[in-house]
Design a protein around this nucleic acid. Structure first.
Lengths: 350, 350
DNA sequence: GCCTGTTGATTTAACGATACATCAATCTTA
DNA sequence: TAAGATTGATGTATCGTTAAATCAACAGGC
C-alpha cells in the first residue's frame, strides 16, 4: 500500500453541521436524505434548504464503512495481450458494463493481467468490491482455477463469454450464442456450395471460439462429402495468422472457404489469400466473427456475425446488481442471440 | 444511490480479534502491519503469526474513512462516440494508466460520456477519488468549461492530450508531441516532391489534431508553391470520412498527398482514393497518425506516426501519484516524443 | 538518589455516517 | 377518559481503523 499522507482536505461540511444549522438531529438529516420518511414535510424542507446552502455531500467513505457496502464492482480482464483493451470485442463489453453501472450509481474498477500473472492477492482484496465481473482466457483448467481464486473474494461473480456455469460458486455467466453463430455461418457457406473448410483458431482457444467451432461442425458434419480442418495459429495476431494461413495454402490444396475465429483473423486470412493469388469470393470465401468497424476496412466487405458484446456488458451489470439487491441470481446462464451479417467476402446462396 | 441492504457478510476478523488473540492492543497490530516501528521484534513476530493464522485483512473502508484517502483515481473520457473505448488511441492510454496505478496499489474508476451529457454532479462526487485523469474532446470553450467543472471536485487533475495547461487550477497535462509528428510527416512528403496537400479533420477537432495540423503547416508554408487545404469531415468515422474524401476528389483536382488526422481517417481516405481510381502511392500519397494494428489491415502499409499513447497513460499515472504524495506536480506540461514510421502508402524521398 | 531520555506498549478519541431503541406528543378507540 | 396506536424526532452505539497523548519500565548522567 502506498505511503499514507495527512488528509489532503479535511472534510468541510458533515451531517452534523447540517443538523446543527437546521436545529435537528443528525438522524433526521440522514432520514430526509435517504427518503426514509419519519420526518414531517416542514422539517424536511428546512433540512433540504440547509443542505443546499452549505453544499453538503454525504461522505461515501463513512457510508461504506457503516453499511459494509462499497457500490463498487471489480472488473478483471485476463488475456495474453498486455494491452488488455486492444480487442474491440472486449472494449465493447467493458463499455456496456460501465454504462449500466454508472446509471445504477455503481463504480467500475478495471484491472487487466496476463494469465501467467494471475493472482487475486493484493489485487482485488484491497478493493472490497461488492461483486466481480471477469473475462477469462486460457485453457479450461486455468480458467477454472481462476474462478476458484476469484471465489475466495466471497462476492458474487459474473463471467462474460464463459460457456459453462461453475458449480458450487455464487456465479452466473453471460454469453452470446456463439454456437448458433457458427451454425449460421456454416449454413450460409454450405448453401453457396462450399464443401471443404478451414477454420482458423489460436493455439489457446477462447471458450467462445470453441463454441463457434462446434456450431460450425454441427452443420458441416450433417452434409456428406464435407471436411473441416482447423488451422492452429500461435496467437490471434494479424502477422501470425497471416503467416500460418499462407503456409497452409502453400502446403496443401486450398479449401472452398476459410472461417476466421474472429474478424481480425479473417482479415489476416484475406490478406494471405490475396498474397497467394486467390480471388475473394470467386476462388475462396472468407468469413469472420464479431462485426466491428474493422470489417469495413477491408475489401471485399467481410461476411461475419454481429456480436452482442455491448449487450453482454449491460446484461452482466444488470444481473450482478440484481443479485446484490435481491440475494440471488435470476438466472445463472444468460445467452444472448447473435445476428448473421452477410458481406461480399462470400458468394450468395446458389 | 441504490437501495441499501443489510451487510452482505459481517466482516469476519478485525484488528481487534488479532489484538486479543495475540494479547496486545489494536494499535500494536496496526503499527506492525504498517511498519511504523515502535514494536519489539518478538511481539511483532507473534502478531504476524496471528495475522497469518486468522487470515486477517485490514478493512479498506475503515482506513479510507480514517485517513480521508481513497487510493482511487477517477478516469473520465468525454467523446462523441457512445462506445467511448472504441478508439485504440484511447484504450492504449487507459491501459497504460491502469497498469501504472495497479502497480502502485491505486484503483482506477472508469467512466465515459458524451460532451453533451457532461456533468460532474453525482458522477464523481459519489466517488471521492483522490485525483482525476481526463480525456476531453469538444471545442476549446467546452473543454475549458469541463476543466473548471472537474476542478470543483477539489482534487488534482491530469489531462491527457490537452495542449495548454489550464491556469489557476491544480492540473497538469501529459501529451505527445503532435506538432513534431506533423512536421515529420510533412518533411517526408515534401521530400518525395509532394506540393499540394489535403488534410482530413473532423468537424470538431481534437486539440491534438490541431497541433498536428500546425506542425504540418509549419513545414509546408516554408516551401514555395505549396498548398494545404483542410477537408472537414462531419466526424472521424470511416463512412463519413470516405464519403467526404470522395466528394472532394470528385469536385476538384486531386492533391499530391492526403494527410489523415489519424489512422482511421487515413484508411478511409485510401479507400476513397482507390474508389476514385487513384493508385497509392504512385498517383497519390496517404499518411495517418498513431500507428495501431489497424494500419496493418490495409494495403499498401500506411505511413504513419507511432503514438506514445501507452506512455501517456503511464506518465499521467506517475505524475498524479507523485503529486498526491508530494503535494505538488513535478511538471505541469509533459511532452512525450513520437516516432515517424514510414510505410508504403508514400514514396521514398527522391 | 533524582532527573532526563529511550523503548515498547496502551488508552482515548476521533473519521462520518446509520441501525436500533426510545421517547414525547398527538390521535384513536372502547 | 384511560389505554393503545401512530407520528415525528432524538440519543446512543457502532462500523474498523489510526493519530496523538500517555504511560510504565528501565537506562544512563550527575
Amino acid at each position: 500500500m502506498a505511503k499514507p499522507q495527512r488528509p489532503a482536505v479535511a472534510r468541510s461540511v458533515t451531517i452534523k453541521d447540517v443538523a446543527r444549522e437546521a436545529g435537528v438531529s443528525a438522524m433526521s438529516v440522514s432520514n430526509v436524505l435517504n427518503g426514509r420518511g419519519r420526518v414531517s414535510e416542514a422539517t424536511a424542507n428546512r433540512i433540504m434548504q440547509v443542505v443546499e446552502r452549505l453544499g453538503y455531500r454525504p461522505s461515501v467513505a463513512a457510508r461504506r464503512l457503516r453499511l459494509s457496502q462499497q457500490w463498487t464492482i471489480g472488473m478483471l480482464i485476463v488475456v495474453e495481450d498486455p494491452d488488455f483493451l486492444s480487442d474491440p470485442f472486449i472494449t465493447a463489453q467493458v463499455t456496456g458494463l460501465t454504462n449500466y453501472l454508472t446509471a445504477s450509481s455503481y463504480s467500475l474498477i478495471l484491472r487487466g493481467m496476463k494469465p501467467s500473472d494471475f493472482r487475486t492477492t493484493g489485487l482485488f482484496q484491497d478493493i472490497e468490491a461488492d461483486g466481480m465481473v471477469a473475462i477469462l482466457s486460457g485453457d479450461s483448467v486455468q480458467r477454472s482455477w481462476f474462478v476458484s481464486e476469484l471465489a475466495t473474494l466471497q462476492v458474487p461473480i459474473v463471467l462474460m463469454q464463459e460457456q459453462t456455469v461453475p458449480q458450487g460458486i455464487d456465479c452466473a455467466i453471460v454469453r452470446q450464442d456463439d454456437f448458433d453463430g457458427g451454425r449460421q455461418v456454416a449454413s450460409h457457406l454450405l448453401a453457396t456450395g462450399a464443401r471443404r473448410f478451414w477454420m482458423l483458431l489460436p493455439q489457446v482457444e477462447w471458450a467462445a471460439m470453441t463454441a463457434r467451432k462446434k456450431g460450425i461442425a454441427s452443420r458441416i458434419e450433417a452434409v456428406d462429402g464435407t471436411s473441416l480442418d482447423v488451422i492452429a495459429c500461435g496467437d490471434e495476431s494479424y502477422c501470425v495468422t497471416r503467416g500460418n494461413t499462407l503456409a497452409a495454402l502453400a502446403s496443401r490444396k486450398a479449401p472452398d472457404a476459410i472461417i476466421g475465429g474472429n474478424d481480425q483473423m479473417a482479415i489476416a486470412a484475406m490478406k494471405a489469400c490475396s498474397d497467394h493469388g486467390l480471388r475473394i469470393p470467386a476462388d475462396i470465401q472468407v468469413t469472420g466473427f464479431n462485426a466491428f468497424d474493422t470489417w469495413r476496412y477491408v475489401e471485399p466487405v467481410l461476411t461475419t456475425v454481429r456480436s452482442a458484446a455491448h449487450a453482454i456488458g449491460e446484461r452482466a451489470g444488470s444481473e450482478l446488481i440484481h443479485r446484490l439487491q435481491s440475494g440471488t441470481f435470476r438466472e445463472t446462464e444468460i445467452v444472448l442471440p447473435v445476428q448473421f451479417q452477410p458481406g461480399s467476402s462470400t458468394r450468395s446462396s446458389s
